[in-house]
Amino acid sequence: MKEMLLMMVSAALVNNVLLARFLGLCPFMGVTSRIDTAAGMGLATTFVMTFSAMMDWTVQHYLLEAYDLGFLRIVTFILVIASTVQFSEMVIRKVSPSLFRMLGIYLPLITTNCAVLGVALLVVDAKMGFLASILFAFASALGFSLVMIIFAGLRERLVLAQVPGLFSGAPIALIVASLLAMAFMGFSGIGTI
């Protein structure tokens, strides 16, 4: 239990997918102009990342390892992630058309999010058990969402700040991102995986 908790804290904060592993930087810069869109994207990514890890773990253990097809791992995982995204989109549309109309835009963007594939590959490389894989992916995704929301909050304040013309826009956003990454380095030493 303690190891599981430590692994989750490590995945979310110490080895944050965005600020320590530098995965999923497209939505980090592209969908963080507002807190609400960043939160929506973060939660959608959490959903897809966790269930993709579940599907990828299953495929890895009962198909790729069982039939010695490890060389097909990346191609298979990409296919599994794309299928998970499409399936999630269809299910949400069926479960609640109103929710789909409001949130449908986020899911297709996740298909090409490298953080989802990166976490699935990390899970397989670490040879984790089923529940550990799921909790690792879930915690990684929560860390992703946390950073997205923090960065969106900072960017909303940056809009109101007086920034020299040379630094306005993307340059100051990148400087803030680097400061945020340095702040997250403060979590180093809590635990690693």
Binding site: F47, S98, M102
Partner: peptide, 11 residues
């Protein structure tokens, strides 16, 4: 509402 919808659909 956007946050509530996200929490409902995904979380």
């Amino acid at each position: 509402s956007l946050l509530k919808a996200s929490l409902t659909a995904y979380m």
